[in-house]
Amino acid sequence: MNVDIGNAVRKNEEAETSEERIVLETKDLNFYYTPEVKTLKNINISIPEKKVTAFIGPSGCGKSTLLRCFNRMNDLIPGVKLEGKIEIDGQDIYSPEVNLEDLRKKVGMVFQKSNPFPMDIWENVAFGPKVNGVTDKVELEELVVSSLKQADLWREVKDRLKTSALDLSGGQQQRLCIARALANKPEIILMDEPASALDPISTNKIEETIEELRANYTIIIVTHNMQQAARVSDYTAFLMTGDLVEFNSTSTLFTNPDEKLTEDYITGRFG
């Protein structure tokens, strides 16, 4: 297992050296589902632009919660409370002048369980642009095609764009959801365990897709699969019981972690 991770990490070593711009930053972030339950504790993290950042940690550590703070999906849950700041491009996304729809257009999301709409494939991909006001048919068509190509789905579905998205296989459905998020031309893509419900071959496909997207998008991926984090990410954050234990470049975190807790977790001593 350790050998595997070592190999995967070496692949990404080049990425660390280049100059980086911070696109997303949290400042003293606290999050409560109920007044008694503090799910995130004092999180300070800076996500670099056009890199893949992975959140790892045991179940219930708050990694998904943190991810859903970035596009304010947690707003849907009644009774939640958030303290601190989350800035994207220097703008606090929780300030009142921020338009929620614009934020979610800028910060796309792919869910754990693929959730294609009960419509045809074309309509699924065009959904985001349409609700955000794109009406030009040519532009829509271009967006749909390029998004499907980027999500590596175009070859498989180009002849059946008008068939129901629900007839696709599980892996294809998940890549369709990625294409759907891409159609909005987001800056940041949040992925909440995107491959956890898929078989190894489909998982591999998703990882290849992420590989192709990393050049143009900032990707934040939550995963409970440490090999996956090691394979796809440039940076990795390790969370535990609501605390950000360590945030480091992936190679450092997996080979030479600063914290004892991280080492225990990645070597499988708990979790």
Partner: peptide
Amino acid sequence: EGSLALGS
């Protein structure tokens, strides 16, 4: 959620 996440 998918719909909202797409900015609808």
